Every structure is written in structure tokens, then in C-alpha cells.
Amino acid sequence: NQASVVANQLIPINTALTLVMMRSEVVTPVGIPAEDIPRLVGMQVNRAVPLGTTLMPDMVKGYA
């Protein structure tokens, strides 16, 4: 099963992502693939992302 990117903490709206904010986990539904974590660093979320939430492509500005 493919691992997805999951929020390791509450990520406030418009926050630029850092490695410490994300972890990989096998979840359903599948979100952004864990191998894209390096690409996500520095990108901003367009909404608040609660701890444990799977990051979906539409949550990250410029990802989709």
C-alpha cells in the first residue's frame, strides 16, 4: 500500500510546509504520495490542516 502525507501537527492556513510538519502513513482515502514530501517543502497550505489529517492535492497551493 502506498503511504500518503499526513499532518504531524496543526498546520495553520497559509503556512509554508517544513519536513517536521509532515509524516508518511498508509491511510484511506489516499492523499498526496509520501514520495512528494521533498517537493512539498516550502509550499503553502490554503486551509488549516488539523493534526493527523491526510494532505490532499487541493490543500496545497501550486501542488495540483
Results as ranks from 00 to 15, higher is better:
residue 45 V to C: 02
residue 6 V to I: 11
residue 64 A to E: 08
residue 60 V to Q: 01
residue 8 N to G: 13
residue 2 Q to K: 10
residue 17 L to M: 04
residue 14 N to M: 04
residue 32 I to E: 01
residue 42 G to N: 08
residue 40 L to W: 02
residue 42 G to R: 06
residue 61 K to H: 13
residue 18 T to H: 06
residue 54 T to R: 13
residue 63 Y to R: 01
residue 40 L to E: 01
residue 34 A to P: 11
residue 57 P to A: 13
residue 2 Q to W: 05
residue 60 V to I: 12
residue 36 D to K: 12
residue 4 S to H: 03
residue 37 I to H: 04
residue 58 D to T: 15
residue 48 A to M: 05
residue 28 T to C: 02
residue 15 T to F: 09
residue 64 A to Y: 05
residue 44 Q to H: 08
residue 47 R to Q: 15
residue 63 Y to H: 04
residue 23 R to E: 12
residue 36 D to I: 10
residue 64 A to C: 03
residue 5 V to Q: 02
residue 13 I to Q: 09
residue 36 D to M: 09
residue 14 N to D: 11
residue 12 P to R: 04
residue 4 S to P: 00
residue 60 V to T: 03
residue 17 L to T: 01
residue 19 L to N: 06
residue 49 V to Y: 02
residue 63 Y to V: 07
residue 60 V to D: 00
residue 6 V to K: 09
residue 14 N to H: 10
residue 27 V to N: 07
residue 33 P to Y: 08
residue 11 I to F: 02
residue 12 P to F: 11
residue 29 P to G: 14
residue 21 M to S: 13
residue 55 L to Y: 01
residue 35 E to C: 02
residue 21 M to P: 01
residue 21 M to F: 09
residue 29 P to V: 10
residue 5 V to F: 01
residue 46 N to Y: 11
residue 35 E to N: 14
residue 7 A to K: 00
residue 5 V to E: 00
residue 17 L to E: 00
residue 61 K to R: 12
residue 19 L to I: 09
residue 10 L to Y: 04
residue 20 V to C: 03
residue 20 V to I: 11
residue 42 G to W: 03
residue 51 L to N: 10
residue 2 Q to I: 09
residue 52 G to C: 02
residue 10 L to T: 09
residue 52 G to V: 01
residue 5 V to N: 01
residue 42 G to S: 05
residue 62 G to F: 07
residue 17 L to P: 01
residue 6 V to S: 04
residue 38 P to F: 15
residue 18 T to E: 05
residue 23 R to G: 10
residue 31 G to S: 05
residue 32 I to C: 01
residue 36 D to L: 13
residue 9 Q to K: 05
residue 37 I to Q: 06
residue 55 L to C: 01
residue 22 M to H: 01
residue 5 V to W: 01
residue 39 R to G: 13
residue 34 A to F: 12
residue 35 E to G: 09
residue 2 Q to M: 13
residue 28 T to I: 11
residue 31 G to W: 03
residue 44 Q to K: 10
residue 34 A to N: 14
residue 61 K to W: 15
residue 38 P to N: 13
residue 11 I to L: 05
residue 40 L to I: 15
residue 17 L to W: 00
residue 40 L to Q: 01
residue 37 I to E: 05
residue 48 A to Y: 06
residue 28 T to M: 08
residue 43 M to V: 05
residue 14 N to I: 04
residue 44 Q to V: 13
residue 20 V to M: 04
residue 39 R to Q: 12
residue 43 M to H: 09
residue 59 M to W: 09
residue 49 V to T: 05
residue 24 S to K: 15
residue 43 M to K: 14
residue 2 Q to N: 14
residue 4 S to R: 03
residue 59 M to L: 09
residue 21 M to K: 04
residue 25 E to P: 02
residue 12 P to G: 09
residue 14 N to F: 08
residue 57 P to C: 02
residue 38 P to A: 15
residue 28 T to K: 06
residue 56 M to E: 08
residue 33 P to N: 09
residue 43 M to S: 10
residue 43 M to C: 02
residue 59 M to I: 08
residue 57 P to L: 08
residue 18 T to A: 03
residue 21 M to R: 04
residue 35 E to V: 11
residue 24 S to E: 13
residue 1 N to Q: 15
residue 39 R to Y: 12
residue 59 M to S: 12
residue 36 D to S: 12
residue 30 V to Y: 06
residue 7 A to C: 02
residue 64 A to H: 10
residue 5 V to T: 15
residue 35 E to Y: 10
residue 26 V to P: 13
residue 1 N to A: 15
residue 47 R to C: 02
residue 44 Q to A: 07
residue 3 A to L: 13
residue 49 V to A: 08
residue 33 P to Q: 08
residue 6 V to E: 03
residue 23 R to D: 04
residue 30 V to F: 10
residue 27 V to E: 04
residue 31 G to Y: 03
residue 12 P to L: 14
residue 58 D to P: 05
residue 59 M to A: 11
residue 41 V to I: 07
residue 7 A to N: 03
residue 7 A to V: 09
residue 50 P to M: 10
residue 26 V to Y: 13
residue 24 S to H: 13
residue 33 P to L: 06
residue 9 Q to V: 07
residue 6 V to N: 02
residue 2 Q to R: 07
residue 56 M to I: 12
residue 53 T to A: 11
residue 23 R to M: 06
residue 64 A to G: 12
residue 29 P to H: 10
residue 36 D to Q: 08
residue 31 G to A: 07
residue 61 K to P: 12
residue 33 P to I: 10
residue 16 A to M: 15
residue 29 P to R: 03
residue 4 S to C: 02
residue 48 A to K: 09
residue 20 V to L: 14
residue 25 E to K: 05
residue 27 V to M: 14
residue 37 I to N: 06
residue 10 L to A: 05
residue 22 M to P: 00
residue 24 S to G: 14
residue 31 G to N: 01
residue 15 T to L: 07
residue 48 A to C: 03
residue 61 K to I: 06
residue 38 P to C: 02
